[in-house]
């Protein structure tokens, strides 16, 4: 399945400034893994040491958080868009 992954500004330093990348996978977990393989410097930002996705990055398919679907096993259709939504913390500075 061809999947589009939307990359927030906070992570674009690791995707050669790209805001949108293509990935492959039948599930959210597979799509994110195929994307991380193409941009190895982003790996430590996406995954904990035990290989689970980090809790300060939410993954959305459409407008739903995969936490409220089937997590990384959430099935994807060809053409789906996956959005990474990390915690950001600017404001006062």
């Amino acid at each position: 399945m061809a999947i589009t992954i939307l990359i927030p500004t906070a992570l674009r330093a690791f995707t050669d400034r790209r805001g949108e990348v293509q990935a492959e996978g039948k599930t959210v977990g597979e799509a994110v893994a195929s994307f991380a393989k193409a941009y190895p410097d982003i790996r430590r930002h996406l995954y904990e040491e035990d290989g689970t996705l980090r809790s300060f990055i939410n993954v959305y398919v459409g407008e739903m958080n995969v936490k409220n679907l089937d997590g990384v096993d959430t099935r994807l259709k060809d053409g789906d868009t996956v959005t990474l939504v990390p915690a950001i913390a600017g404001g006062r500075v």
Binding site: A10, R44, S55, F56, N58, P86, A87, A89, G90, V93
Partner: peptide, 13 residues
């Protein structure tokens, strides 16, 4: 967000 990013992973403004 149950927990924040570890320091040393995200740059500030």
């Amino acid at each position: 967000y149950p927990s924040p990013p570890p320091p040393g992973l995200v740059p500030s403004c």
